[in-house]
């Protein structure tokens, strides 16, 4: 019965509250100017945490079959592969696409 996890209303509200708080934090950290690469790192890190909370507790992957978890992980892995291989090209061009 892995697919029929029933969350309590209190739990769902708790998850939403955590997401609201993290949304506030991600806006609040832009008020204190964090130096260059770290502001991006912090913003992405908070977004990743929020996304994982949604995936685990709203999309119920936490209680779901391991195969669905595997599907999700593989999609992220191939997305990272796509980014990595493309950047190996675009980051090391002498002349980025000239007129575009």
């Amino acid at each position: 019965m892995s697919g029929h996890h029933i969350s309590s209303a209190k739990f769902l509200w708790g998850v939403a509250l955590a997401l609201f708080v993290l949304t506030f934090i991600t806006v609040a950290v832009t008020w204190i100017q964090i130096p260059e690469p770290w502001n991006i790192v912090v913003a992405i890190a908070i977004a990743v945490v929020k996304a994982l909370i949604v995936v685990a507790f709203f999309m119920n992957l936490w209680w779901d079959s391991k195969f669905n978890v595997l599907l999700f992980i593989m999609s992220i892995a191939f997305f990272l592969l796509l980014i990595g291989i493309t950047l190996l090209d675009t980051l090391y061009r002498v002349d980025p696409v000239p007129s575009f």
């Binding site: 892995s2 697919g3 599907l71 999609s75 980014i83």
Partner: peptide, 25 residues
């Protein structure tokens, strides 16, 4: 039946992640 449908949806969501992935790239 429920598990099969849900797995099918997760496969679709994988394609959605890669679909938006191109734009994020």
């Amino acid at each position: 039946q429920f598990e099969a449908s849900k797995m099918g949806m997760w496969v679709f969501l994988v394609t959605e992640i890669l679909f938006f992935g191109g734009l994020f790239l």
